[in-house]
Design a protein around this nucleic acid. Structure first.
Lengths: 152, 152
DNA sequence: GCGACTTGGTTGAACTCTCAACTACAAGCC
DNA sequence: GGCTTGTAGTTGAGAGTTCAACCAAGTCGC
């Protein structure tokens, strides 16, 4: 079966390349800053954030994986590393004997509290300072549309 | 010295999280598709694209690194891998004895030609099909603003 | 209660990326 | 020329991610 490829037109091409370049540059900058200032990659920072927001600072592994948009395997490896750093602890789940619960330790909360101001400042400087309020709104709508489309 | 952190307000927070989630989901989807269908990660696909567009299908390593927004180290490793696949060949630069030129082989061009339709279709399906023409325009402007801001 | 299927989570190998160190050559300066 | 500094690119080690295989425990149907 032959299917004609719907190639990108000039506008789409330009949009796609700009989006790729911008996103890559932003993520690399933030990742480098976080690694340098707080000794953790952005993915690990997000894990700590989600745990810190959860009741009791604890979440089932699978819920944490969903919240951070990560695979179970990735989260398993990451948790092992965070556990070695003393920032997260694993406990058995009382209601499901297969389950594990990741718990943010006090040291983990402290590490997050130390990292957050610098990182938030980075997000502001590298992203929001460049955009108008209207653009921030547009970016939110576009991103939410994308999320719906990709996961719907 | 004490500096007050300029925290994100609710709108910014929501925008940031949606952007992160959307971008991660999109990139992972495209990367997985490309890996599955063409046996290469997205970063390598981009290298082949840039080479295919260059005159003589060849570029200096440093130009290629800039074009793909990659570090020299990353490009070195990637080129080694692409060379092992027979998709890229390295030649000495005639004008600068330190230099190397990456050349896209016929096999590399064929691999790109085989991968491109599926990948472009993926970009269209997962991104552009979800956005209105106005949103595509907004995303382009936002992304170009970000690139200027991050690299300016 | 028992087999089949599904879900929760981990593991190891292969792969990619980052960082810092390093070699080699080019360019500027005296 | 000879010295210093900058640029081009590579390398190896360490860290993070993916994929597939796997075990253990829950769930469903009969």
């Amino acid at each position: 079966m032959v299917v004609m490829t719907r190639w990108l037109n000039a506008d789409e091409q330009r949009t796609w390349r700009a989006y790729l370049t911008a996103t890559r540059a932003l993520m690399e900058t933030l990742d480098r800053e976080l690694q340098h200032d707080a000794g953790m990659p952005h993915a690990y920072y997000e894990i700590l954030v989600r745990l810190s927001e959860a009741p009791g600072r604890r979440l089932r592994m699978s819920e944490l994986a969903d919240a951070t948009g990560s695979s179970r395997s990735r989260l398993s490896h990451a948790t092992a590393r965070l556990e070695a750093s003393g920032w997260v602890r694993r406990e058995a789940c009382p209601t499901d004997r297969r389950g594990q619960v990741a718990v943010l330790t006090d040291a983990g909360f402290a590490a997050l509290a130390a990292a957050a101001p610098g990182h938030v400042e980075g997000v502001r400087r590298h992203l929001f300072d460049a955009l108008s309020p209207a653009q921030i709104d547009q970016l939110r709508r576009i991103s939410e549309t994308m999320v719906d489309h990709l996961t719907g």
